[in-house]
Amino acid sequence: MKNKIINRRNFIKGGLGGAVVASQLKGKESQAAGAFDHYPDSMGVLVDVTRCVGCRSCEAACNQEQGLPEPEKPFNDYSVFDEVHPHGGHGREERRTTEYNYTIVNKYNVPGVDHPLFRKIQCNHCLEPACLTSCFVNAYSKTPEGAVVYDPTVCVGCRTCMIACPFYVPTFKYGSAFKPRIMKCVFCHETRLKEGRPPACVEICPQEALTFGKRTDLLEMAKSRIRSNPDKYVDHIYGEKEAGGTAWLYLSPVEFDKVGFDVHVPHEPVINFVRDFLSIVPMVLLIWPALFTGFHLLSNRKDAKSQHDEDNQEV
């Protein structure tokens, strides 16, 4: 953080030229994307889809903990699972997180499974969050505890984070003209995680479908669950590699796309896709001026020469 402040100050001191933008960009980029080793002791949550029974307690607890607006239906009303085209997405058939709820549970009837499966959705708190790397006002930060938190006081409302998030998590208060902001799960960072306590949804979960712990421990735990129950789980931990790794990890009894996961999410941080462009920036800034001034001199020389030739002819 201190480093960041110093950077900013130098930045302003150094003037507003493009070259400075480039050097800053290069420095920050390698720091943010290349050499960054993640926080080794950061926390996470392991979601076991086999355990969730769809009681919606997590939704209720989240709503209370975060002081979110009143829902349309009580949280023990299970008819929401059968809603098609609920509000939040115009063409989306499923329920999704909206500006009114940071987490929701969806029901899936999977052929071959005799009971419905449930999947909880919330921010996955990526290790290298796309929202963070795409934000041009640094509104996002990844805390050492593992949460990806958002600062509404600097947000401009460009919504690039929503474009960048591979999990479609950040939502925007479109209904507010004067105080719009991004709404998304913050891992109960301020109220709980900071003190080492699990988020409200984990604490309320009766089935321990949500296991809170160090991400490294959770990965081990997930692997051992798969190992000791190979028939019960698909051999994949969603979130181990997806989007470069997420704090929230998932185990499922069926292929992940059958319970609503996007299995096309790349297995590397989103910033990797942007790097190619970022790397050309300093090159353009350094090479272009010389190149084009050179062209100019060349073409002027031609002018001068033809002028000279003409003069000669006249003589």
Binding site: L16, K28, A32, C135, V137, N138, A139
Partner: peptide
């Protein structure tokens, strides 16, 4: 803001 208040220079939008 992106110019003077809170800078996120690693972002393309910046």
């Amino acid at each position: 803001y992106p110019m003077f208040v809170s800078l996120g220079p690693a972002a393309v939008l910046f």
